[in-house]
Design a protein around this nucleic acid. Structure first.
Lengths: 249, 249
DNA sequence: CGTACGTTTGATCTTTCTCAATAATGGTGG
DNA sequence: CCACCATTATTGAGAAAGATCAAACGTACG
């Protein structure tokens, strides 16, 4: 039996951010059988083509979804932070259509598919929360289509930085206007449909404009409001509960 | 009471394509209370910001999801064909993050939110099929991120044409290698993150290469295999059931 | 038959990519 | 603690894909 309780609190919070849980639901989640697993940077959590059998929840560390084109170009599809249940997009499908990989070292809570399904069947509000978590992810995918399809490089990158800031705040993982971004230029390029070279130049532009401050991997935002405007960033697509959205500044 | 039975057969088929239904499920779906509504081209089914109260199923006609950037650029997020339940992405969220609009004249089966939820609660396999339909949509969103982020104009357009062909075949709406595409150059441009001018030139390229034949709005594909290769198109992301996937050629 | 809408084509401009060289950073073993 | 190597980041110059502007041409429909 793993150390029950507090590692799954991350999942409780991750669901609660979008759809409020009852006290009973929280308890049900905390009691789910699960294993805690340490994973290295670059470890694959899912590989395209896999038949999904587990549901992993990120407890610490970052992960990302990606898929490659036939000629070997990678496109990153989303970034995941602690609290995200990384397998929701696969669990009910026959085979994975994309891969999920760790960005950093991290820890997972791993729940067996059957246990997860039992959890979903145990409560209507919990089931609802799980569906909402899936749908919010889909909303973020849609926002990425817009980002990559209709915004210029500068706006695109700023938008990505905003999204990660707000999601981390909502999860209580960042309190001021800064966070550590464990993505290389190549990751950023593959997330925005650009090249690493152009990402480098564009981040420099944002810095020169006083919208971004970098030291090592730490990103901070001297003028959050202006950054949001410059990023064409609005909160709606994240579907945060009002109490989480208060973390907006 | 509406003409029960065969208008909702479209929905039955739309769910069954991805996740097989039991005979009981089919009957449950057919018996759902619903209204049949005729809609004009360009009619809005959902507007960004709306609180969703109904679930519309496309019976005839085409629709599309879209969202606009702050500076007024539109991005189309998906195209919908008969059998698609157009509100699944909203129904469990507080407010719509994007709009859904008719591309053509059409008819809808409109189900009240509460009736739809009751349907979902009535059967485990049906609930599963609804979740799968949501997740397949999300998979298509992901494919669009890849398309717009990492493929050139020619591949992008070819990919879109392939997707629409296969989805229509799986729904039994097209049997040979052709279909009527009710999208203008502007629609195609907004779906692929290009400009109408460049879409025009690029379609011409596809025609010159013998991959596409256009007369009026009818698209046909003289060499389907080669088109798929040229489009970097694979079937995995559509998650079709084997019996639907047989319609592949 | 005229008007609105959609499409095609040409010429030019801009953003982003590509190729290439150099500089910084971070982790590792001595 | 330092030196080394691999990885990541920056910068420059030239090339290319796609955007923009503008005009002409088709087509559908009242």
């Amino acid at each position: 039996m793993p150390t029950a309780g507090h590692s799954l609190d991350r999942l409780v919070h991750g669901l609660d951010v979008h759809s409020p849980l009852t006290a009973g639901d929280r308890q049900l989640v905390r009691e789910v059988p699960h294993a805690v697993r340490e994973v290295d940077p670059h470890a694959y959590l899912v590989r395209e083509g896999d038949a999904p059998g587990i549901c992993s929840v990120l407890i610490t560390g970052f992960a990302y979804r990606h898929r490659s084109t036939g000629d070997g170009n990678r496109q990153i599809l989303s970034i995941h932070i602690p609290g995200d249940a990384v397998d929701l997009q696969h669990l009910y499908l026959e085979e994975a259509d994309h891969s999920v990989q760790m960005l950093t070292r991290g820890t997972l809570a791993v729940i067996a598919r059957t246990d997860f399904e039992a959890l979903a069947e145990a409560s209507l509000t919990l089931r609802r929360a799980i569906v909402v978590a899936m749908l919010v992810e889909a909303s973020i995918f849609r926002e990425w289509i817009v980002n990559v399809g209709r915004r210029d490089a500068r706006t695109r990158l700023a938008h990505l930085l905003c999204e990660l800031a707000v999601r981390q705040r909502a999860q209580g993982l960042a309190d001021d206007n800064s966070y550590d971004l464990p993505m290389t230029l190549e990751h950023l390029a593959d997330a925005t449909g650009l090249t690493p070279v152009h990402v480098s130049r564009t981040l420099k532009l944002l810095e020169d404009d006083g919208l971004l401050l970098r030291s090592k991997r730490r990103m901070s935002f001297p003028d959050w409001r202006r950054l949001c405007r410059s990023a064409d960033f609005t909160y709606r697509f994240l579907h945060l509960e009002p109490h989480s959205a208060e973390m907006q500044r």
